[in-house]
Design a binder for these strands. Sequence first.
DNA 1: TCATCAATTAATGTATGCATTATCGGATGC
DNA 2: GCATCCGATAATGCATACATTAATTGATGA
Lengths: 231, 231
Amino acid sequence: MNAIPTPDAPHQPRRSTDAVYAQLKQHILDNRYPPGAQILESEIAAELDASRTPVREAFVRLQQEGLLEIVPRHGVRISALSPSDMREIYEVLMSLEPTAVELLARRRPDKAELAKLIASCDAMEAALQGTPDLQAWAAADEAFHLNLARLCGNKRLAAMIMQVWDQAHRARMFTLSLRPLPVQSTAEHRAVVEAILAGDVERAREIYHEHRKRGGLELTTIIERHGIQRL
Amino acid sequence: MNAIPTPDAPHQPRRSTDAVYAQLKQHILDNRYPPGAQILESEIAAELDASRTPVREAFVRLQQEGLLEIVPRHGVRISALSPSDMREIYEVLMSLEPTAVELLARRRPDKAELAKLIASCDAMEAALQGTPDLQAWAAADEAFHLNLARLCGNKRLAAMIMQVWDQAHRARMFTLSLRPLPVQSTAEHRAVVEAILAGDVERAREIYHEHRKRGGLELTTIIERHGIQRL
DNA sequence: TCATCAATTAATGTATGCATTATCGGATGC
DNA sequence: GCATCCGATAATGCATACATTAATTGATGA
């Protein structure tokens, strides 16, 4: 009779599908499967020690996230980003991320709530001291934006930001060493946090919008200058 | 006269998964499966005359779209929207849709390009003449926003708008008869089109933002007044 | 009578087999 | 020599069988 069995303890049973999904996604983000590459169900299945069924389910999930494309009867292809795709991604981020900042700023969070953001700022600054560690900087940058999305209080918004962020991950990593040292970018992050703490919603939004706009421009400039067509 | 396998024209093989997905989605949007309902793989499979495999794939896709939830080992439940979910959805739309309008307006489209939007405006006005036809109005409203998303020139942005729009579909239908006659809303649509034609990017964006803001406020008011918790 | 627990039932998760179809290679004809 | 066609091969799409685990029911004892 009880139609809704609400489990009090949502203990997560290990599903093969989840493991395959997580590893496959990691491999794509790590550029282990290069963009445009065609991959086979059975290869992945053998590699991850699973059958084709969970692999297929993972494929469907990753397709929805835009990380690969399922071409019926042709197999699966890792998504490659064109310059136009990069434009799309940055347009979306320029829309969503300032909104996330605004939502967060409106809540008037205290320093404790922003601890992770502040830590990311510290890490970014540390990464630029002395010999710049671009990998470390990128990781801190990513953590900043991830936590910002999480903190905004809107799960859908957060999920959407993280989705396009993931889509652009490889492109960001690729252009990391081609762009100027992200000193300005680091300062902008710090300024956003301060505007949030000061309760200046409009300023926080504005700084962030400019930050994203500049970042997008920088990236597209690099792409054009190097004539990159797919990444 | 043999069919030469043209690499650029992939004739779409009819996949069972796609059919199951489309029908299942339609049934959810039509409220045939009520929110919160638990559904069984085998039931759907029998109903749509397929095996469980394509049904499961459709489930995964629909979960990614937020229309249902897969609770491991517990089955599948049709998503129910809480007032908080509605807030989230409108926050996302208030962010994305004005951006779509802005992108479209910047392109300086002519009347021909906006034909579908103008037709939707006409249809909305016609639906309010004499005895109001709310169903017809809602269909025209939906067509307007859908085409706007398509026209903005950003596929990712469009997909995101349509996704949350679908999530809110049932709630909109439910509250359709509870809200005041959408005369103001209809006028705002027309005003947006005119601002786009006039090339006034900022005004188009502003009108649209207010339009969405007012719509969200209206809906949340209704939800609160009626004490609706899930829909 | 109620609570607890074991055994049954049933549904999900996974593996595998089968059928369809795309790809590739070779043979044939011009 | 080149294009075309046919057959072999292999990979996907779907169906189904099996394993695992959750829900249910009945029995037992307090």
